[in-house]
Nucleic acid binder design. Structure first.
Length: 284
DNA sequence: CGCCAGGGGAGCT
DNA sequence: AGCTCCCCTGGC
């Protein structure tokens, strides 16, 4: 077991931020002041179970596995306090958003995995996105067993999907997005789009490269850059963000002020728009 | 059954 | 840049 107790880190908020569709909340208890939740997290070919409580969380892995993978995955070396301190105190809206989403981290998810996830995300709701990804993992991913004996499925690799018919993933409930995923897999396998090269590119270059893929537009490309490449300057604009900008930033979001970390601010806003009305505010 | 929304995109002008 | 049309499911 590894205990994570860091400033500006909340597993619950990360889950609620909806950036990872392979993080599943399996239990949620609330009694008085205490709040506790259990999660199953799959990333790439790895799996871990987690319990969150007021003040931190526990991971079901050893120190070695944690240092090897999860520390980076959760972006625990990022200084989110520094990001938050850059927020303009006069921007009450953003201050409040960050006050609510103080524990969000931009997870460092795998590039291919993120690409497929957000191809599936378009015109789709989060519950179904999760189901879709679970379906393709079960059908085309590798069956693996955790140290604790839990069976889980790794994320299918491009080669696992490139040979399918374009509509074959409809059986996994992807709907019309099936051909986006299959074509993306083919483009990657053929080398038409080299994901390893994309990893070394600037944000502008990477985005341009991703936009070559059928089914990848502006919004999906920015999401892939933010969550799959950790380009913190990426600023995905979906329907929620668009509405928020309309309401609070009539002259456009002041990206200059937050140069290099616009993506973090985007997450605070996104989270606030989705959960702000529920009054969710975990005690620090 | 119809209607519509769900973290858009392609293909036009 | 803005507009239309389109794709598939699930909920009502």
């Amino acid at each position: 077991m590894v205990r994570i107790q860091a400033e500006n880190f909340s597993l619950d908020q990360i889950w609620q931020s909806g950036q990872c569709f392979r993080m599943v909340q399996v239990e949620h208890k609330e009694s008085g002041d205490k709040e506790e939740a259990r999660y199953e997290i799959t990333a790439g070919q790895r799996y871990v179970e987690a319990v969150s409580f007021n003040g931190g969380c526990l991971l079901s892995c050893g120190e070695r596995e944690f240092e090897d993978f999860w520390r980076e995955y959760f972006d625990l070396d990022g200084d989110y306090g520094a990001y938050i301190s850059r927020i303009d105190p006069k921007d009450k809206y953003l201050c409040q958003a960050a006050r609510l989403g103080w524990g969000i981290r931009i997870l460092r998810q795998g590039l291919w995995e993120t690409l497929v996830s957000f191809l599936i995300s378009q015109q789709n709701n989060i519950a179904r996105i999760r189901r879709c990804i679970d379906n393709i993992s079960r059908k085309y991913g590798e069956r693996l067993v955790s140290e604790g004996g839990t069976i889980y499925w790794g994320f299918p690799k491009p080669e696992d999907l490139a040979g399918l018919e374009e509509d074959e993933l409809m059986a996994c409930n992807l709907g019309y997005r099936s051909k986006y995923v299959v074509r993306a897999a083919r483009s990657v396998v053929s080398g038409e789009v080299d994901l390893d090269k994309v990893k070394g590119m600037s944000h502008r270059e990477a985005k341009e490269e991703l936009l070559k893929l059928f089914g990848v537009g502006e919004k999906v490309a920015e999401c892939v850059c933010l969550f799959g490449l950790h380009h913190l300057e990426a600023f995905p604009v979906d329907t929620h963000i668009d509405q928020a900008l309309e309401k609070h930033y009539r002259r456009g979001f002041p990206k200059r002020k937050y140069k290099g970390i616009q993506g973090v601010m985007q997450q605070y806003i996104f989270y606030y728009e989705l959960h702000g009305d529920k009054g969710v505010c975990f005690v620090r």
